[in-house]
Design a protein around this nucleic acid. Structure first.
Length: 274
DNA sequence: AACGCGCCCTGTCCGC
DNA sequence: TGCGGACAGGGCGCGT
């Protein structure tokens, strides 16, 4: 999906575009993207006539904060798009699952070909519960090298897989897990518990650097990620290992390797990463 | 508890 | 040109 940098870019775009707008109504075209137990009728009822206070992000989720402590939480899955109907590229959305209309005549469109995404709605209490299930925000002050080190002690999982677990660190997906491990000089297959203290300092710095740089570049577009205006990101040109198997490592020239861990590709430089 | 696997769904690309 | 298989940014539920 959209990982943290993509969700952050979308949230910022939408905050600019719809902050202050009032929801007029909701149309659910693909009910299977609603969270389990949520119905189109209830979603509609909870959103109608509420003002959008701001649009933010938690992990890989885009969060619409509404008046009355109501939140619409959108997980974009692998192929989700969030875009406003007045953006030039809105007409390119061919798999619109949910349409949130605003009283100014526009709409927020949630488009998702594969429908791995999800739309949920929370009151203050249920949001607190959901928020607690998610791990630390990697760009926050709460995320320290020491915390990364201590979190990693209890797991024998390969670090690439370990980084994907949203309950430990929220927002890291396959692209940035691989990129951060490259920058830290650690193989994706290394068991979490085997990470040394020195390496945890490097991995911590690498995660924050790669996520910050990717936000700066407005995300990575491999195929179909688009920002809140429907435009592609730019970080794909700065990737060092992801999707580069067989190509030369930009640091040492060795051929980048692709392996499969838990049915998902991992990429690394056999010389730079130990 | 932690872990590994299968599965959800659609589209694209590659080899034969 | 057609067809089957592999693969794709994610995450849940299951059995062990």
């Amino acid at each position: 999906m959209p990982e943290l940098p993509e969700a952050e870019t979308i949230a910022r775009d939408l905050d600019t575009r719809v902050q202050g707008a009032v929801i007029a109504g909701v149309r659910v075209h693909r009910p299977d993207i609603l969270a389990p137990g949520l119905t189109a009728a209830r979603l509609s009822r909870q959103l109608r006539a509420r003002r959008i206070v701001r649009v933010s992000r938690r992990g890989k989720n885009v969060v619409f904060e509404l008046e009355g402590d109501v939140r619409v939480v959108v997980n974009l899955g692998m192929t989700g798009h969030l875009i406003t109907s007045d953006a030039a590229r809105a007409k390119e959305m061919r798999h619109i699952a949910v349409r949130i209309r605003t009283t100014d005549g526009r709409a927020i469109l949630f488009d998702d070909v594969r429908r791995f995404g999800q739309v949920d709605v929370h009151d203050a209490e249920s949001w607190l519960a959901r928020d607690t299930e998610l791990g630390v925000e990697p760009l926050s002050d709460d995320f320290t090298a020491e915390r990364l080190f201590s979190l990693s002690r209890s797991s024998i999982v390969p670090l690439r897989n370990w980084l994907l677990d949203q309950q430990r660190i929220a927002g890291v997906g396959n692209i940035y897990a691989n990129e951060a491990l490259f920058r830290a000089g650690v193989r994706p297959t290394r068991r979490a518990r085997r990470l040394t203290r020195v390496e945890s300092v490097r991995l911590h710095a690498a995660l924050r650097a790669v996520l910050a740089e990717a936000i700066e570049a407005r995300g990575t577009t491999i195929d179909d990620y688009r920002d809140g205006s429907g435009e592609a990101g730019g970080f794909q040109f700065q990737l060092r290992v992801y999707g580069r198997d067989g190509e030369a490592c930009r640091r040492c020239g060795s051929a980048i390797k692709r392996i499969v861990l838990s049915n998902r590709s991992a990429f690394y430089c056999p010389r730079c990463q130990r």
